Amino acid sequence: MERIVRNGSPDQRSWALSTLVQDGSHRTIRIHNAQLRAASRGVAPARLAPDAGPRRAVADAAGSETLPGATARAEGGEPVADVTVNEAYDGLGATFAFYAAVLGRDSIDDEGMSLLATVHYGDHYDNAFWNGRQMVFGDGDGELFHRFTVSLDIIGHELTHGVTEDEAALMYVNQSGALNESVSDVFGSLVKQYARGETAEQADWLIGDELLTDAVQGVALRSLKAPGTAYDDPVLGDDIQPAHMDGYVRTTSDNGGVHINSGIPNRAFYLAASALGGHAWDRAGRIWYESLRAPQVRPNATFRSFAAVTVRQAGVLFGAEERQAVSEAWREVGVAG
């Protein structure tokens, strides 16, 4: 967004600036809502039967910035004429199904939380976000970005922020913030892989590959397999994600580079999943998930401390082969596990 403000057309700059201004506020609200949820833990939620499945509702903001908007489709309802509503509904369901079937998790909070989403948010809003209570999707600007509901891994990414808030409460700054973003990329990719039935070898390991229009010189927003190669565009600039600690970016922008330095743990996961083979969610995904839930992972976790927990969990959950694969993956990106 910052690069579009510098390099885009007048309209693109205006839309990007509006998105940037709102994003700062939305992240503050997300932290606030996460704190409220944490304070209410221990209060028994209203729950359906364990096998009841997701409880989804998709609302339409109709271009406004008022949440949630008018309900357009609720759980069990038939598809509607608006493809954006249906994509959001299906994406919520696919993410719920992944966490339930693969990891035994009952929704975002593991307590049957309803999954709410709002589509058609704002005017040419170039983002999607989890605000601590619900998902929100912009329609994109139509010139650089398509509608944000089009990408299942984006939906999985944003909902996983809620899982991370619930389990580890990783601080959204510096290395803990980069881990926060990386965990969302990892499980966003796994949600897509699970829905497609792909192995680690078959997966594209891209985030947001459907999102960029043909006007953009790039393939996605990020690549877990090859950080730094997702795009190289006159307006968006080049992908500056490092793939190794040698390229770690020390900056005060982007909350200390949370969307930049996440490339390092992203590649570590890709390397571990590729070394183990098969479906990435079976072993590598389970290791990362149980590590996120481990009490040793503190809110201010560093790459090194998180790596150490993943190596330990690999051994506890599986064995020496998995422990070696995870340890080697972290070493390959310059992090001692």
Rank of each mutant, 00 (worst) to 15 (best):
H146N: 15
H146K: 09
H146A: 07
H146M: 12
R147E: 11
R147N: 12
R147S: 15
F148V: 08
T149W: 04
V150C: 11
V150W: 00
S151D: 15
S151W: 03
S151C: 12
S151I: 00
L152Y: 00
L152W: 01
L152R: 00
D153F: 03
I154T: 04
I154N: 01
I154S: 02
I155G: 08
I155E: 04
I155D: 05
I155F: 02
G156Q: 04
G156C: 08
H157L: 04
E158F: 02
E158K: 10
L159C: 06
T160Q: 12
H161R: 09
G162K: 07
G162S: 14
T164V: 11
D166T: 14
D166I: 00
E167Y: 11
A169N: 14
A169Y: 15
L170D: 11
L170I: 10
M171C: 15
M171A: 14
M171H: 09
Y172N: 14
N174A: 14
S176M: 12
S176V: 06
S176H: 12
S176Y: 07
G177N: 15
G177E: 07
A178G: 09
A178I: 05
L179K: 13
L179W: 05
L179P: 04
L179F: 01
L179R: 08
N180D: 05
V183T: 13
V183P: 00
S184G: 15
S184E: 05
V186I: 06
F187W: 02
G188W: 03
G188R: 06
S189G: 05
L190K: 00
V191P: 02
K192F: 01
Q193M: 11
Q193R: 06
Y194P: 07
Y194I: 01
Y194T: 13
Y194D: 01
A195D: 03
A195H: 13
R196W: 03
G197R: 01
G197D: 06
G197A: 11
E198Y: 05
E198F: 09
E198I: 05
E198G: 06
E198V: 09
T199Q: 06
T199H: 09
T199E: 10
A200K: 00
E201T: 09
E201D: 15
E201H: 10
E201I: 10
Q202R: 13
Q202Y: 10
A203F: 04
A203I: 06
A203C: 01
W205F: 05
W205A: 01
L206C: 02
L206E: 04
L206D: 05
G208W: 04
G208V: 03
D209M: 03
E210I: 03
E210A: 12
L211C: 07
L211I: 14
L212I: 04
L212A: 08
L212V: 13
L212T: 13
T213K: 02
T213E: 01
T213H: 09
D214V: 13
A215Q: 12
A215L: 03
A215V: 07
Q217N: 14
Q217G: 15
G218Y: 12
G218M: 10
G218A: 12
G218K: 07
V219P: 09
V219Q: 13
V219A: 11
